[in-house]
Design a protein around this nucleic acid. Structure first.
Length: 256
DNA sequence: ATGGTTGCCTCGCAA
């Protein structure tokens, strides 16, 4: 079972790109972030014609997540539990073939002296609480998406330059580590313990041609999912296309 | 040197 996550940075602007990637990568489940449209405006038919069912949670202009699956998505949960007043479209979760999968778009948090950083940390606390609840179910769980967290210095082309950024502050990394230490496995890091690889390259300042990126898109696996982890990787090809997103897909393969 | 780019769909904000 192949599960992939991809921050598409607008599904409307990226549709040909995403369809091409889907055709080549052929994941069983594709978790998308930053669709940047309302659910009603998501191009459902294009994905259905490729054999995918679509669960989309969106809002106008910003954020938005989707869960595409070849097999039915059951018990769909829209929105991260823990704050009914949070109206940002950043979370969708469902069960596909017995695996609980989530597409999440964790808040960026910049600038750190604004209300955005406490919102990010609050969202991470809610995610930790929910991740703990999911662990108690003892089912395979895959929490995938754009975490907007650089876990370690080696996941960044220039840690010093990012020292004060919301994606790399010690407080941010500590919150991420707390979720992992509940008992989750970073799929890419488990398969490639020594590899330096990135999932995001800024459009600006020639970051992509210089391979100056950061690794912020992750798949976190519960023990029952990690037991089945066969392979994982980052698809750099998508970032090199015309009209590319600033992110590239990250994936894992679970034994059936 | 505080640069530069993309997408939203407004004349700035978010990333």
């Amino acid at each position: 079972m192949k599960i992939a996550t991809f921050n598409v940075n607008s599904i409307k602007a990226r549709l040909p790109n995403v369809l091409e990637w889907l055709k080549e990568a052929d994941p069983d489940v594709a978790l998308l972030q930053e669709i940047k449209c309302q659910a009603a405006d998501f191009p459902v038919l294009e994905f259905q014609s490729m054999g995918y069912q679509v669960q989309a949670v969106g809002q106008k202009s910003y954020n938005g997540v989707a869960l595409l699956s070849k097999q039915p998505a059951e018990n769909v949960l829209e929105g991260l539990p823990g704050d009914d007043s949070d109206e940002q479209a950043r979370y969708v979760e469902a069960t596909v073939q017995g695996v609980r999968v989530a597409s999440l778009y964790l808040p960026n948090g910049n600038p750190v002296d604004s209300e955005k950083y406490p919102y990010k940390l609050g969202w991470m606390k809610r995610l930790k609480a929910h991740a703990a609840t999911l662990l108690a179910s003892e089912q395979p769980v895959v929490l995938a998406g754009d975490y907007n967290v650089i876990p370690e210095p080696r996941d960044c082309y220039d840690p010093a330059a990012w020292a004060g950024d919301a994606l790399f502050l010690p407080e941010t990394r500590r919150h991420f580590r707390e979720i992992v230490n509940l008992g989750y496995t970073d799929a890419f890091r488990a398969i490639h313990p020594q590899r330096v690889a990135y999932s995001f390259w800024d459009y600006q300042a020639g970051r992509w041609p210089r391979d100056e990126g950061i690794r912020i898109d992750h798949l976190l696996l519960s023990p029952q999912a990690a037991d089945r982890l066969r392979d994982a990787g980052i698809d750099k090809k998508a970032r090199g296309r015309e009209k590319a997103s600033d992110h590239t897909p990250v994936w894992c393969e679970l034994d059936s």
